[in-house]
């Protein structure tokens, strides 16, 4: 099971600002190891954010995103105490879902 993400969600005016730090190697598939063998690509492909069950962000990522990626976004609405859920799926099919409460 992959390590958890860190999520912070705060109400800013009439929207909610969400900051997510994900735990992932994000191998590009372009690097070689000490033996000269290509290190296979391994990266997050899909990211979905939901607020009270409704999708507020959906993204397709590729190998150009950093290791341990940091994602920040805003959506209209959201109140203190609401739940925000972030799910990512990588190209190996591994998946991680984390939840945070809006503060």
């Amino acid at each position: 099971m992959p390590d958890p993400s860190r999520i912070r969600a705060n109400v800013v005016g009439d929207s909610t600002e969400v900051k997510v730090l994900m735990n992932h190697e994000m191998e590009t598939g372009q690097r070689k190891d000490a033996q000269g063998k290509v290190i296979p690509a391994w990266f997050i492909q899909d990211v979905t954010a939901t607020w009270n069950g409704k999708t507020v962000l959906s993204a397709q990522w590729g190998p150009a995103v950093a290791k341990n990626p940091f994602l920040s976004f805003k959506f209209k609405g959201g109140a203190k105490g609401d739940k925000v859920m972030i799910t990512w799926v990588d190209n190996r099919g591994e998946k991680r879902t984390d939840e945070a409460t809006i503060a």
């Binding site: 150009a64 995103v65 950093a66 290791k67 341990n68 990626p69 940091f70 994602l71």
Partner: peptide, 10 residues
Amino acid sequence: MKTSRSGRAA
């Protein structure tokens, strides 16, 4: 949406 490619950013 904002993502950071940290190594590249450096």
